[in-house]
Design a protein around this nucleic acid. Structure first.
Length: 653
RNA sequence: GCGCCCGUAGCUCAGCUGGAUAGAGCGUCGGCCUCCGGAGCCGAAGGUCGCAGGUUCGAAUCCUGCCGGGCGCACCA
């Protein structure tokens, strides 16, 4: 906050100065931290950029700008360095106290309504670590958007009428010869994990299709019945989907991920959302019925005229098949229109589950059991769809759908949060008992496949992380309380996994390696927790010794930290103050790894300080106070970041 | 064929809208627990930034071409 003010003021002052001195208007002043602390706290190469136009040497220009430049209060001086950089040096003491006052202040509301759709796991098998990347990215994006003052709706789309559900139903009905009664018994049986059972069954069905291609007929029949929503088969599909989604929400909750509403694909059809969207699309003229050709009998969207799709071999996208069923993209366009409130909200909602604090997850329903007082969903101003990069083409078509309906603004505010997939390292695949083929041995990674049952299940990974943390706790630092140790192990597991999913750039394929993900050292979530826990220990000991750290809001004015902070201390404050910028940039670029990267850099800097400057045993009061202030700045900043990335803060480790 | 992404240290990755001496983690080697907890800290070795041009005062970063790898372009989702 305070940093932003300084940057704005400096930027304005420099612009004004350049205008009066050289008569040159500049619209943007680059102000960033110089590479080394000794060079100052903010720097701009503006003089170099002006050199040509102003026909003067950069240093000369810099000197001219610097002399008589009005500086913000917290900036003590300006210097000219290097080839002609203008460097600004802060009043460290003043800045630190101002900043300490402002950390963690709630954001001012923007009034902007945002919808984030994420997770979207097919409800036919257990979640794997690839789904986790999606859920963690989506959830973290939400936390950042909220931190920037937006009102965010958390949606999870349930594809309950798709091929994947159909295949598991085929497994139950045709391979196992089971019906609703048997499946319900399985769901109720606490000794089987239903999502794991379906994981294997789904793979079995896939194998069966390979050996008996004629069995694909089963899939078609089953899918058709599920889409129509009639009969035993459709009911079985709904029962399976519901049971699996229940498991998925439980898995997500282990990572602190919650939702507001589950939108079911079946309801998009049954609540006539599609019919309405279809009417609109038909009148737009860009969606036409094909009388002949290879798409005879289909309704297709013409993409040839759009610049986005130029040069495509197949510029037509089928929205309605010749048998009258709607494709996935078609339904997705209708869904997207609803998210923006462009076809109203006639969904009915019922309670799906409650969280411990009483908040409700709603789900759409078309069974006439919608609740009267349910909240109203949809109608956002911006929409983020967290979906992996392989669906980039379809997301473009959804955007195009809004555009051809004349919703230019909404089309632009339909943001595809695209990220790369999670694959398996050959070593991890082998460890899973997969027979890695010789030709795959050389590959950097192997793609996971639900159909083949190849993948690391999310709950297995979490279990393994917890077990590892648990082992370390009991062998090294158990408090003796079983419940406390277990809780701590859970907190560490969450930190490790969430951090792991966030630390890579979103365009990078993660070649998932179990050993790397299990690491609690170095560039990891537990490292961040550990660093922060240690600070907490210092303050706890102070309290035990009856020393008041004097860091309460009302005490700050009287805080006697004496002289300015030395570089080792100041650097921590300066970095902490950058956090707001980092959040903003992370959301702008959808690069959430910026946040974890920043947190890691900060923790590393702090750990170095921690070893070099003891606090409790420092005899000089003012020096001890200075160090405590720095530790407190770090602690509050880290807590703020933990909230942002969903990492829990243990009180011991 | 068209489109998107990746290529930086032995391995996994940072490097922000061009800017000051290209940085971490892991691994390797060597130090540091009578001292706020060693899930930590300090140090060393290790880089033709895939290749070739171009733009610029300045390029890992921008542009063009090429090489290597991945993904997408279904009446699947």
């Amino acid at each position: 906050m305070i940093l932003e003010q300084i940057t704005d003021q400096l930027s304005d002052a420099i612009k004004a100065r350049v205008l009066t001195l050289f008569g040159i208007p500049i619209d943007r002043v680059v102000l960033q931290a110089p590479p080394r602390l000794a060079m100052g706290d903010l720097a701009t190469p503006v003089a170099m950029e002006l050199a040509k136009q102003a026909r003067k040497a950069p240093r000369q220009i810099a000197e001219a700008i610097a002399s008589g430049l009005e500086l913000p209060v917290a900036v003590s001086r300006v210097s000219v360095e290097g080839a002609g950089y203008l460097n600004f040096h802060f009043d460290r003491r003043l800045f630190t106290l101002e900043f300490l006052r402002a950390i963690g202040a709630p954001p001012s509301a923007t009034g902007h309504r945002v919808t984030v759709e994420h997770t979207n796991i097919n409800p036919n098998k257990a979640a794997h670590i690839g789904h986790l990347r999606n859920a963690v990215l989506g959830d973290t994006l939400i936390r950042c958007l909220v931190a920037l003052g937006n009102h965010v709706e958390r949606q999870n789309y349930i594809d309950d009428t798709g091929v994947q559900v159909a295949d598991v139903v085929v497994g139950f009905e045709r391979l196992l010869g089971e019906g609703i009664a048997e499946v319900e018994k399985r769901i109720a049986d606490p000794s089987v994990r239903f999502d794991y059972f379906c994981w294997d069954l789904y793979a079995r069905t896939g194998q069966h299709y390979e050996k008996h291609p004629e069995a694909i007929e089963w899939r078609k029949e089953t899918l058709h019945r599920i889409e129509k929503g009639e009969g035993e088969t459709a009911r079985l599909g709904a029962i399976v989907a519901k049971a699996i989604v229940t498991r998925h929400l439980e898995t997500a909750l282990r990572l602190g991920i919650e939702y507001d509403v589950l939108v079911k694909e079946s309801d998009i059809i049954r609540q006539r959302f599609w019919d309405r969207a279809f009417e609109l699309l038909k009148t737009s003229g860009s969606v036409v019925f094909e009388e002949e050709g290879k798409h005879k009998g289909c309704w297709v969207m013409k993409l040839a005229d759009s610049a986005e799709f130029e040069g495509m071999e197949e510029p037509d996208k089928i929205l309605v098949r010749s048998n009258g069923t709607v494709t996935y993209v078609g339904k997705d366009i209708a869904y997207q229109l609803w998210k923006f409130g462009l076809i109203g909200d006639t969904f009915a909602y019922r309670e799906f589950r409650r969280y411990d604090d009483g908040r409700i997850v709603w789900e759409t329903t078309s069974e006439g059991d919608g609740i009267e007082g349910a909240p109203h969903f949809g109608g956002a101003q911006s929409v983020y769809n967290v979906i992996d990069v392989r669906q980039g083409y379809l997301q473009k078509i959804v955007k195009e759908g809004l555009r051809i309906l004349g919703h230019q603004t909404e089309s632009e505010r339909s943001i595809h949060f695209s990220y790369e997939m999670v694959a398996l390292s050959p070593a991890t695949a082998k460890a899973l008992g997969v027979d890695v083929k010789p030709e795959d041995e050389q590959k950097a990674y192997l793609e996971m496949s639900g159909r083949k049952g190849l993948g690391v299940k999310a709950d297995d990974m979490l279990d393994e992380l917890e077990a590892k943390a648990r082992e370390k706790i009991s062998s090294e630092r158990s408090t003796g309380s079983e419940a406390d140790d277990a809780k701590l192990a859970r907190q560490i597991a969450i930190a490790a996994l969430r951090y792991f999913m966030l630390k890579y750039g979103r365009t990078k394929v993660i070649a998932f390696d179990v050993n790397e993900a299990l690491s609690f050292e170095g560039d990891s979530g537990p490292y961040l927790q550990y660093s922060t826990v240690r600070v907490g220990n210092i303050f706890r000991k102070m309290e035990e010794r009856g020393v008041d750290p004097m860091l309460g809001k009302s005490q700050l004015d009287r805080l006697a930290i004496g002289e300015e902070l030395v570089d080792d201390m100041w650097q921590i404050v300066r970095m902490s103050a950058d956090t707001d910028n980092v959040i903003r940039r992370a959301v702008e670029t959808l690069e959430l790894s910026l946040v974890t990267r920043h947190a890691f850099d900060l923790a590393q800097t702090f750990n170095s300080f921690y070893h070099k400057f003891p606090i409790l045993n420092e005899k000089d009061d003012a020096e001890r106070q200075r160090r405590a202030v720095v530790a407190e700045v770090f602690r509050r900043t880290m807590n703020q970041i933990f909230d942002l990335v969903g990492i829990p803060m243990p009180d011991r480790m």
